[in-house]
Design a protein around this nucleic acid. Structure first.
Lengths: 319, 319
DNA sequence: CCTCGCTATGAATATTTATTCATTTTTTGA
DNA sequence: TCAAAAAATGAATAAATATTCATAGCGAGG
């Protein structure tokens, strides 16, 4: 058959299907072809570029950037928020809200949610969650211990509690420090009934909300008397560590950095964390670019919620 | 949920589905939604115009015009050919070729094809059909008698024969004149075994190829001694007739014009013609616009094959 | 504070579309 | 000119998508 007429047929089928919304069987009837034939004409129309499908994103959305990052970093989903400026305050607030919205759409009542702490973005998240229980979960489980001194001590518990309240979920607390002074102390902590009970839930989580740490101690971490010392951090850095999730450290490619300090951390273990089906990293800011990238590449997170400035930086770095 | 985030979700789903070609279940898995939910997001994306699908027709095709005519004239399919100029020669040749291509795509080996005659476009059609039998039909049935004098006498038979040959189909001829001198003569013609046999096939056709006539006698018709006289034509015109298919006349809206002359025509009857599932009208030219329009509106044809000039004129007239 | 009607949701199901498979047709290479 | 490989086709079937249905949450009005 003359190719010109063939093309005419392809075009007509494409028009009827995509513009006029006619079913393939009806197109087949009108053009006296089989439905299979119409399906093949339509495939050709796509391949030859006779149809073009374009998405026009609403203002303030970044779906191309999101997709680029998702594929380059191997993530299931990336949420990039529009952010007024790249100050830490703006970023934390913006990604906290986005994370809340992510939960609104992605959370089921049957979900068992783990939450790390020491992350200002997660605090913002819990504040943006609607207080009325439209969004629900079954459990909210604290993934790492709190801190032993100061007001910050209770932050982890508070965060867990607030999240549990807003999600109408039963909370599970650690009630111990996140960093023990010695490996033996850690063992003692882990024997505590509370802790054991909570840790028993780790392998049964359906989702985890985590911050992503850098080696430079975050504001919250620094305030605590129990954070690692400068020397310890320097040692971690010399082992190649660039960041952490729940105090489990990894290098620039996301490979776990094993280190004696691991033995003092009271938190979900790296293997357990990686078994959680959906770990949502909520983080942004210039200083976190390298650790976010590493967390993604290492498979520590499946979902990333970040701001447009950090996202741009990640995209540049990745290409 | 914040509508802005909702839109972001819609956009992302649309992007994944239409740009990245991800299945709805996989999108659902990635965004933690149900497949039904994704389907609904996608519907919204279409409704809100976030996706736009456009067809860019290859050069020399007229799918918009075709669709416009199909819907305005109530036809299943319209083929508009690109035509170098609007001379009768160019038009006849162009639509003949297009008709041949239409048959190539639309004809099944099981089809029983009726063919009218006295149409230069149908002659062109049969000439454009490939002689090798790639395109096949079961039968080719002459729908109206030939003419009694001159070379033109055999045209109808020749056309039927040639078409049958090219389609590797068994022909059925009339072997009598298309217009009898009196109603009684017509009866006698119709009693002829050949004629009866052929006419018995009329109700079993799956497709018919017809020209569309105007009251002004066509070149072929005029040459014949047996065409209607000027007076008879004038009388038909005064009854409102504007054109015919197989010498069955109709007015500007396609309503059959019954008239004494009907009784002298040896051809498929109007009811039988209307019972054919797919009547393909092949016609073009400035003088035929009104009769083509009428044939379509009256349901005499389901498929129209014409040239771009005639198509434009039809579209203007119809709006 | 409760009830009705509205909307939204996910599981189940119906519909629609893509693919497979068995043939037939066409082309290519000897 | 023929045979073999490649391509095209349509019926059957598998896969994917849309819709239905039953249920649950939310707001308006009693």
């Amino acid at each position: 058959m003359k190719p010109e007429y063939e093309l005419r047929l392809v075009t007509k089928a494409a028009h009827l299907y995509w513009v006029e919304q006619v079913r393939q069987v009806d197109i087949a009837a009108r053009l006296n072809l089989s439905q299979a034939g119409v399906s093949r004409l339509l495939r050709r129309a796509q391949k030859e570029g006779i149809v073009s499908i374009s998405i026009k994103p609403p203002e303030g959305t970044y779906h191309l950037l999101e997709e680029e990052l998702a594929s380059k970093l191997g993530l299931d989903e990336v949420v990039v928020t529009s952010c007024p400026d790249n100050s830490d305050n703006a970023i934390v607030s913006s990604i906290g809200e986005a994370a809340a919205q992510y939960l609104a759409s992605a959370l089921r009542e049957s979900d068992r949610v783990g939450i790390s702490s020491w992350s200002s973005a997660l605090v913002a998240l819990s504040e943006y969650l609607p207080a009325k229980g439209q969004i629900k979960a079954e459990r909210v489980v604290q993934l790492m211990g709190g801190m032993s001194h100061d007001r910050a001590e209770h932050l982890a518990e508070n965060l867990t509690l607030q999240l549990a309240n807003r999600l109408a979920a039963r909370p599970a607390f650690m009630h111990v420090a996140g960093i023990a002074s010695t490996p033996d102390a850690r063992k003692v902590f882990c024997e505590e009934p509370y802790v054991r009970e909570t840790m028993a839930l780790f392998d049964d989580l359906t989702l985890a909300l985590v911050g992503i740490g850098t080696l430079a101690p975050s504001r919250f971490l620094a305030r605590s008397g129990n954070a690692f010392s400068d020397e310890e951090l320097a040692e971690l850095a010399s082992c190649g560590a660039v960041g952490d999730v729940c105090l489990r450290f990894f290098d620039a490619n996301g490979q776990a950095v094993s280190h004696a300090l691991d033995e003092r951390v009271v938190a979900i273990s790296a293997p357990s964390l990686k078994k959680v089906p959906r770990v949502v990293g909520v983080a942004g800011g210039r200083q976190k670019v390298a650790s976010i990238r590493a967390a993604a590449l290492g498979g520590w997170i499946q979902v990333l919620i970040t701001d447009c400035f950090t996202a741009e930086a990640l995209a540049e770095k990745a290409s």
